[in-house]
Each structure stands twice: as structure tokens, then as C-alpha cells.
Simulated assay, not measured.
Amino acid sequence: MKIGIVGAGAVGLLFGFYLGKHAEVTMYTRTSTQADSIQERGIVCYTSGKAKATAVKAKVLGEELPADEFLLVATKQYHITDLIPLLSECESKRIIFVQNGMGHLNAMQTIQKSIAVAIVEHGAKKVSGNEVEHTGQGVTKFGVVQGDSMDFTSFLACFPPTFTVLEEPDWKQVMQHKLIVNACINPLTALYRVSNGALIYNAYFYQTMRQLFTEVIQLLDVQESEFHWKRVCEVCVQTASNRSSMLTDVTSNRPTEIDAILGYLLQLPKAHEVKAPLVSFLHKSIKGLEM
């Protein structure tokens, strides 16, 4: 089976490493330097200090249209709009999106193909062009947006038992649950320049995160708030030493996914009724740091 992966960041490399054990994987990268590195050395994954490698192919995105049976899109959310023409024209009939936030939902549903989403709860850190560190074991939740679940049966069978994938019929709710976690953790860590655990162990940061959480669930009109708050705190503890992807983007002078997370919340219908000054402040602050 042939699986293409568009985007060779931390998540793309992580999926390439595990899927490459049971499928013919091609990584589609932005640069020829990274493609050459992956092609020559494979993808090296570090887990608990031990390194293992998986051989995969690599090409520069745009040199030719992908024709893989499945195409997994692991780019940042803000690249999706530019990718729509390529994804619509390519021969791949089944496409899986792996992004933070929910700002890309409308764009991906314009593609007339079988579409699915994967919500990743693993910790991953890109070490180099062909190396990734699996920093936290989790699960991947999978949901079919367009098409039939049978369209993706063979794709899901390619994951090894150590990389748990759970099929979720209510994929939108699962994405919303992750959005709550991302909205409460990522912008604050990026602004304060701290690891995730600081939001729990610093009393002032903790109080700010609680206030932010209250605004987030009001904008989403979500019930069972204590369940979600417990989950946010658990993620902070479980990933205490991790730096959020938004913090990494800010410190590396790269665009962030703030529009797909807080920007998405500010465009919801509830935003006309609910006061969310902290959400608005953080959205503007991170946008300012991108300039």
C-alpha cells in the first residue's frame, strides 16, 4: 500500500516512522535538502533514549502530483488553503488531515474526495530534517468526515499495535475537546515563554489559565466544564517538560496556528453574546509576536 505524507514536521515524521513499517510511505517536503536527508537516512525516531529508523521515500512537494492511495496532510493549519488546489487535482482519493484547531474544517470539505481527520494526542519533537523524538505516548483519534469508514480500513490496518488509533463516530466533538486543551495551553506558554507544566505549578499562570478556560467553554457553549478543566490540567502535568508547538513557532520566528485556535473561537456565533477579553487579548498578542 502506498501512503503519502504532506509535511515533514514533528507529526509528519512521527506518522511516517510508524506507518513506514507496514506501508510504502513517501514524505512530501518543502525543501530538497530535507527530502534528500530522509531519502538517504530514513526517519529516525527516538523513544526513551533509544533510536530506531524506518526507511521511506521522499520528494519535494510540487515536483509532481501525489498519486498515493492515501494522503495524510500533516502541515500547519495555515497552509491548508494553499494546498486545496493540489489536493483536489492529485490522484489520491482518500485524504486524512492532521492539524491543530478547527479553522480548516470548511476548506477541507470543499475537496470532492473521501476525507478524514486524525486528532493526535502524542508528544513529538522534531530533532532534525529526518529525526523526531516521541516525547509522549498517547492515542490518535480518527474520524471520517466525507465518504464511508470502509474507505479507510486498509489505512488504519497499517498502524502497528504500539501506535493506538481509535475510530470516533463523533469526530467533531473530539476535535472540540482537543481545541479546548490547545486554546488553554498553547497561547499562554507562547506568551510567557514557559513549558506546559508552568501553567499548573505557577499560581499566577494557573489563575490566568482558569480564566481563559472559562471564556473558551462559554464561546463553545460546552457543558460539563469540570470534566474539561480536569483534562486541561492533566495534559499540563503529563507534558510538564514539553514546549508547546506554538511556543516553538514563536521562538523560531514562524507563523503560529493562533487563527485556527483562538481566531476560530472569536468567529463563533457565541462571540457576539459572550465577553471574552482574555481570548481576544491573547489572539492579538500572538499575532503581534508573529510580525
Rank of each mutant, 00 (worst) to 15 (best):
A8T: 13
A10M: 11
A10R: 03
V11I: 15
L13P: 00
F17E: 08
F17N: 10
Y18F: 15
Y18C: 05
L19G: 07
K21P: 12
H22P: 10
V25L: 09
V25K: 01
T29D: 10
R30N: 15
R30D: 13
T33W: 06
T33M: 14
A35L: 14
S37Q: 12
Q39D: 13
E40N: 09
E40Y: 00
R41P: 04
R41M: 14
I43E: 01
I43A: 03
T47P: 02
A51F: 01
T54Y: 01
A55G: 08
V56R: 00
A58V: 04
E64D: 12
L65V: 06
D68S: 12
D68T: 08
D68M: 03
E69S: 11
V73I: 14
T75P: 07
K76T: 04
K76N: 07
Q77G: 10
H79F: 06
I80W: 01
I80N: 04
I80V: 15
T81F: 02
D82Q: 13
D82K: 12
L83Y: 03
I84A: 08
P85R: 10
L86F: 03
L86G: 07
L87H: 01
L87W: 01
S88M: 06
E89M: 12
S92A: 09
I95M: 07
F97W: 01
Q99M: 15
Q99T: 08
N100K: 03
G101Y: 01
H104I: 03
L105Q: 13
L105P: 03
A107P: 00
M108C: 08
Q109K: 12
T110H: 09
I111W: 06
Q112D: 14
S114G: 13
S114C: 11
S114L: 09
I115D: 11
A116D: 04
A116P: 05
A118D: 04
V120G: 03
K125M: 12
K125H: 07
K126N: 02
K126E: 02
K126F: 02
V127H: 03
V127P: 02
S128C: 12
E131C: 13
G138H: 02
V139A: 12
T140K: 05
K141L: 14
K141G: 06
K141E: 13
V144L: 10
V144F: 05
